[in-house]
Design a protein around this nucleic acid. Structure first.
Lengths: 149, 149
DNA sequence: GGGATAGGTAACAGAATTGGTTACAAATGT
DNA sequence: ACATTTGTAACCAATTCTGTTACCTATCCC
């Protein structure tokens, strides 16, 4: 079970909410229910993907690298899910089988799963972090101090 | 890395090819490059899902429970992927956070990922095991003894 | 400059999952 | 009866994931 995608989306939504001023990994970890180092580790990935930028030192933290309207869940998914085909495929189906069946099967499955993966990508691309924020705002009017950080 | 989906599809395509007469887990394992027990374990799942049926004893084995044209990759995916939302979600985002943010975030993400999952399902539903067999046949004209099992 | 704050990263531990393997009981055809 | 084959439990090694500690570096403020 990969919680990174969910935690990353959580964090990005949070950052979008307090856009302009950086948020520390401690605050983010508290909100996401995890450990600051986990957040920082995730930040490394998101930073490499160009989704956030961080400032060290006192008063530092992380903020979005571009507006929340221009970060899609597909961006997050790509950043966090190291190898996309991993989703289904096909580490095994032993390529060193007696014959080529294994390898051919792998190619065939990749070809047939392609549309499924593509469909999912399209759907993810249609949702922005900003929309996540709006959804959240509707569901959490004012219950939570962290939500307005 | 979950190889079960790929192995299951491999097996079902194989069974579709020799429809009518049962295939032993040993033959299937050899073709898929894994261990007979792994195949049998997978069969338990596929049998529960109503995709195959097995015969014990001498001359036994497994065969498709219905025509390969009427088994979709979505059927396989559902059977093999124990909890579908597992795909992305959201085991953590600690529900016992200070506030409801964790739980609400979880609900929100599920709502927003819904379309993505649905799109993938639709695409998987559009491909049958029979199509996988045809794809395979095109790619492996006659190279492999196992392919004609 | 010095201290406090905060990120970057390595390293390790514990839990969970996965796949391969052995072992054995139960069923079935010859 | 006996050989064959499934069903299933049990175990191991490898991998992955998350949490945690530790320590270095960068930055701000005095």
């Amino acid at each position: 079970m990969n919680t990174r995608f969910a935690v990353a989306t959580h964090i990005l939504a949070y950052l979008g909410h307090s856009q302009g001023q950086p948020v520390s990994s401690e605050v983010l970890a508290s909100s996401a229910g995890t450990h600051p180092v986990v957040v920082r580790r995730l930040m490394s990935t998101l930073r490499e993907a160009g989704l956030v930028q961080s400032q060290r030192g006192a008063g530092g933290g992380t903020l979005l690298a571009r507006p929340a309207t221009e970060i899609s869940l597909l961006d997050v998914f790509r950043a966090v899910q190291e190898s996309e085909p991993d989703l289904f495929l096909v580490g095994s189906t032993n390529p060193s089988s007696h014959c080529d069946l294994g390898r051919v099967m792998q190619q065939t499955l990749e070809g047939l799963f392609g549309p499924a993966i593509e469909a999912m990508r399209t759907a993810l691309a249609a949702v922005s972090v900003h929309q996540v924020m709006e959804e959240l705002a509707q569901r959490v009017p004012q219950q939570c101090p962290h939500a307005s950080g």
